[in-house]
Design a protein around this nucleic acid. Sequence first.
DNA 1: GCGGATAACGAAAACGGTTGTCAAAATCCG
DNA 2: CGGATTTTGACAACCGTTTTCGTTATCCGC
Lengths: 127, 127
Amino acid sequence: MSTRRETVRQALTESSGFRSAQDLYADLRSEGSKIGLTTVYRALQALSDSGEVDVLRTDDGEAVYRACITDSHHHHLVCRGCGKAVEIEGPMVERWADSVGTQHGFTDITHTVEVFGTCADCAAAKG
Amino acid sequence: MSTRRETVRQALTESSGFRSAQDLYADLRSEGSKIGLTTVYRALQALSDSGEVDVLRTDDGEAVYRACITDSHHHHLVCRGCGKAVEIEGPMVERWADSVGTQHGFTDITHTVEVFGTCADCAAAKG
DNA sequence: GCGGATAACGAAAACGGTTGTCAAAATCCG
DNA sequence: CGGATTTTGACAACCGTTTTCGTTATCCGC
Ligand SMILES: [Zn+2]
Ligand SMILES: [Zn+2]
Ligand SMILES: [Zn+2]
Ligand SMILES: [Zn+2]
């Protein structure tokens, strides 16, 4: 119910890419909000616990979050330049991951799959 | 040629799973080595820069390293319990990642794919 | 509305993994 | 054997994140 959690969710939703807690904090403050960094972290934690947002780790270990449209299992195609993300599906990848796991005697199999690239906009801006 | 870098490489090689810098440091110290934590970090950085070891991030952002046998592109099936890892390949996943990226107008496409599970040993120990 | 319990909030401190600093020790070279 | 160069490791700084704790807002029975 918290207003602040709603605020954070909306800030995330307005972005098309993955954003860090500190990014969102900076955005909200620059819009005049008096929200605290702790609250942003708490909201993101709650949202990711409830599965409402996706979280992944950048190469340098920072957590970044995204409010995805679909709530079923999916992966992301993420722009290395601007963070913009596209939700993607790959049924054969799901099957492959499960089968390669069971083939080696593993159980409770999960997987992480992320595809990275440079989006058309960023490529144009750089070219 | 540094002896210390060799020491770290060997400590990694003796393990079948992904290990953190602090893990390796603790191991080496307990074996009587007088190596410093900074040096372990430096060695791992150098080894991963040169592509001799693979690195990935745990859920909580910690970097873990592994000395893989093959030096060609591959992925890992990692035990959630003990960190033991198996090198796996999935040509169809490689193709899928590239094609889904180009389909959305992205270039310079790369990907991360990791499969997690509980290995037979850990399942037996827990059951 | 009022008053007290309860939950949310935010500033600041603590935390943990990682990196930077710098002087001491080891190695190299002439 | 010097002196230059590189490697090393104790320690401090860093940075993202979590914890702490006193304050503030929200609920709810009256
Ligand atoms: Zn882009
Ligand atoms: Zn999947
Ligand atoms: Zn295991
Ligand atoms: Zn691959």
